[in-house]
């Protein structure tokens, strides 16, 4: 893995964790494996706000259908990375 992709991975994860820290978590810790639906109190309105932050930070458009297979914070990070790498 190149340094650049590693940096991108870290930047995405850091952005997500920073934004997600605003929401209550049911377990003690918020990390890459936290399940967004099961472990966090985040409703669809808050989710939209989070996605907007992500879109603005990375200059991407996050299509709603991509949420289908997102369960953990890591899943979300992976989808964002894919969008960033395919950015026109």
């Amino acid at each position: 893995m190149s340094h650049e992709t590693q940096d991108l991975d870290q930047e995405i994860m850091q952005t997500l964790l920073t934004h997600l820290a605003r929401f209550p978590t049911k377990s003690d810790e918020l990390n890459a494996q936290t399940d967004l639906a099961a472990d966090m109190n985040i409703d669809s309105v808050n989710m939209m706000e989070l996605l907007m932050e992500v879109e603005d930070t990375f200059d991407i458009s996050f299509p709603l259908n991509m949420m289908a297979n997102v369960n953990t914070v890591q899943d979300l990070a992976d989808q964002i990375k894919q969008l960033v790498e395919n950015r026109p």
Binding site: M47, M66, A68, N69
Partner: peptide
Amino acid sequence: PATMHIGGHAGY
């Protein structure tokens, strides 16, 4: 409907 929630694949 065209709507999706976190991890909503199977439900949708």
